[in-house]
Amino acid sequence: MENISGQDFIYGMSAVGAGLALIAGVGPGIGQGIAAGHAAAAVGRNPGAKSDITSTMLLGQAVAETTGLYGFVVAIILMFVKPFK
C-alpha cells in the first residue's frame, strides 16, 4: 500500500466524497416526512379537500427534495464523471 499514486488517491477520495455528499439526503427525508404527516392530519380534519391537499403536499415535497438531489448529482459526478484527473 506504500506506493499508491496520486490518481488512485483521488479516485478513492472521490468515492468517500460521494458517500459524504449523500448525507444531504437526511434533510429532505425529514422535511418530506413532516409534510406528509401534516397532510395526513389535514385530510383527517377535512376529507373533502383530499385532492387539493395531496397536490399541495406533492408540490411542497418535490421542492423540498431538490437539495437532496443536489447532493445526489454531486455524488454521481464524483463517482462516474471523474472531474479530478
Binding site: 427534495e65 431538490t66 438531489l69 448529482v73
Partner: peptide, 16 residues
C-alpha cells in the same frame, strides 16, 4: 437550475 436538476436527479436516481 433547480427545475432541471429536480427532474434529472429523480429519474437518474431511478435509472442508477
Amino acid at each position: 437550475l433547480s427545475l432541471s436538476v429536480r427532474l434529472f436527479g429523480n429519474i437518474m436516481s431511478g435509472t442508477v
